[in-house]
Design a protein around this nucleic acid. Sequence first.
RNA 1: CGGGGAGUAGCGCAGUCUGGUAGCGCACCUGCUUUGGGAGCAGGGGGCCGGAGGUUCGAAUCCUCUCUCCCCGACCA
Length: 445
Amino acid sequence: MRLSRFYLPTLKETPKEAEIASHRLMLRAGMIRQSSAGIYSWLPLGFRVLRRIEQIVREEQDRAGAQEMLMPTIQPAEIWRESGRYDDYGPEMLRITDRHERELLYGPTNEEMITEIFAATARSYRDLPKMLYHIQWKFRDEVRPRFGVMRGREFLMKDCYSFDLDYEGAVRSYNKMFVSYLRTFARMGLKAIPMEADTGPIGGDLSHEFIVLAPTGESAVFCDRNCLDIDVLSEDIDYGDDGALAAIINRFTTLYARTEEKHDTAAFESRVAKDRRYEGRGIEVGQVFYFGTKYSKPMGAEVIGPDGQPATVEMGSYGIGVSRLVGAIIEASHDDAGIIWPDAVAPFDAEIINLRPGDEACDAACMEAYARLGAAGRDVLYDDRDERPGVKFADADLIGIPWRLVIGPRGIKDGKVELKRRDGTVADEVALSAALDRLATAPRG
RNA sequence: CGGGGAGUAGCGCAGUCUGGUAGCGCACCUGCUUUGGGAGCAGGGGGCCGGAGGUUCGAAUCCUCUCUCCCCGACCA
């Protein structure tokens, strides 16, 4: 993509409404534009990131055995009356009436809808287990939306629902999602720690929040440093091996990891040696939750069991805040100049900066780089604009593409270009061909 | 929902107290000069001053009502 043709309305000054880094940087980098409180349009740069995050979530859901579907944003009030939540939900639910005076709502979540679908179609225990998910826009009419996409009213969420015949089955599903989440966040370059979460009136210990560590996070978190060192991506995970999954989960759940709401200083200090105590801040990006028959019972989601008797299905739900993740990743990875995208979610793999468009040698070198990287399957942003170098460097820092290839008249007369990582780990003056070899084979994360 | 603040050009702001034909910086357009970290000079375009009523010869400015947005708190993927 040539930057001269790309719709990238960057801002030099910060819009005054943006307080936190991710909000500020997303606005400045031309990723989003606010429509009304807590509701945003996603401009091309932001949309690219959103799609990449969504795709990682999708791949890891599929890998864990969940199946993608799509449910509507608008739901009938009726099914929420069946579950008893229509009145419980309160003013956070956006209620709508259509021309026939039918009561509708813009879905804040989909337990009722999926349960209703499942109840109407599942017959036998042989239909179980199942895990179904979708990635869809939701709406919660927050009293006070803030922090940009981190706490919007409209947000993109992946929600998955599991259906099992009994508690043991539900735990297996829960474990699959738990491990899937570990992999999902790790692939995005995040340290996400599962922390014990409130299970509300249902009780039990089967709920975890996944917290991304970021110094600007909203809640204080306390955990054993050993949590930070577990590398889930290097393992070959077999989702059919219940024992292996349980073992991975045990490694986390036996370690102390809690948010401030559940933090217990005495327990922390007795369970975690002093040098292993980690205290920081974090952002919740996902939650896994077992809730048994809370919805299946009132909505009649039953199957005939092996014994010929009807059995109410055991359910769980598993959410990931996809749009929130965009903000969370920026909170976890930025500096004063701008965003530092992890490779796996970056809007482009590399940016080529032509310091002197119109200079024959620079143009030729840039076009060679652009063509070669494109042929190697890289997504490249080519800054061919007729701007001064300072403007280009500043925009490049701001939008945070992981690799930067700077081609200017000074270097090119010696056949040299500058190859840099946005995160500062690489800054080399090398021959163009060497830089291209390196970029063409660099991991995409 | 309680408390605070703000709506004036795309963005950041001044002007409001003390009414008198709307301004600054950046951005944008044209030309020339520049070109390795947000260039210089010259010229130019762009505003029903959030909206509705009112007071006045005259309202961005005073009065009334209203809408929106932001911050702190309570609440949340």
